[in-house]
């Protein structure tokens, strides 16, 4: 069963409810699916297509456009080493080579125990702290070979479970809009008037 489970369907409907058009929830729902299964399954895509009112082909098209959605299982920890300019200037390639040797896989591969997937990625927005990496989108800065070894050991031993959840989980805090505060969505085709706080002429400066 790799469609969204019951709890996630409830979550999905809540998320969809925040957008004027259900289709806008596609990417958030793909994240929910990846959080549930660790990667994006075909069944999940078909399910999301039903939920947002698109075809499966359209959701597949959206899904494959974005780097973070994995169409095949990846390791419990996705180790992304940045190799764009700032990190490259500070030795990112050597770090990748070291990681490949240490894990016994090439970048793009997954260790046989299913623990680590190693990827060479583009700029992660931590350029002054180069070379940097992300493990399941949690940063490690100014990483040298020894620190990388230690980090991988810690991950493998489960010492960082509190900080770094398994692949698929990005944010552990979700927005939740209290019913009594929500304004409700503003549908593009149903609203033709200026909002009430605007001056009557509806003009701005």
């Amino acid at each position: 069963m790799t469609r969204l489970n019951d709890a996630n369907q409830v979550l999905a409907r809540e998320i969809i409810g925040r957008y004027p058009k259900a289709r806008s929830a596609t990417i958030p729902l793909l994240h929910v699916a990846q959080q549930q299964n660790g990667y994006i399954t075909q069944e999940a895509i078909a399910h999301i297509a039903e939920l947002v009112g698109a075809t499966s082909a359209e959701v597949l098209g959206t899904c494959t456009f974005y780097e973070m959605f994995k169409m095949h299982p990846v390791g419990k920890y996705l180790i992304n080493i940045c190799t764009t300019m700032s990190c490259a200037l500070m030795g990112a390639e050597q770090l990748v080579t070291h990681a490949e040797q240490r894990l016994g896989i090439k970048a793009g591969g997954t260790t046989p125990d299913g623990l680590f997937t190693l990827e060479r990625v583009e700029c992660q927005a931590a350029c002054t702290e180069a070379p940097c990496l992300q493990a399941n989108y949690r940063y490690r800065y100014r990483v040298n070979a020894a620190q990388l070894d230690q980090f991988l050991d810690d991950l493998a031993e489960g010492q960082l479970d509190a900080e770094i959840p398994a692949h698929g989980v990005v944010a552990r805090v979700r927005q939740s809009i209290p019913v009594d505060r929500a304004v409700s969505v503003v549908a593009p085709d149903d609203v033709h008037e200026a909002p009430v706080w605007m001056p009557l002429s509806g003009t701005t400066a």
């Binding site: 957008y19 806008s24 974005y66 780097e67 973070m68 927005q175």
Partner: peptide
């Protein structure tokens, strides 16, 4: 509404 990107 908080919206998440997915890497692009």
């Amino acid at each position: 509404v908080l919206h998440w990107g997915a890497g692009a």
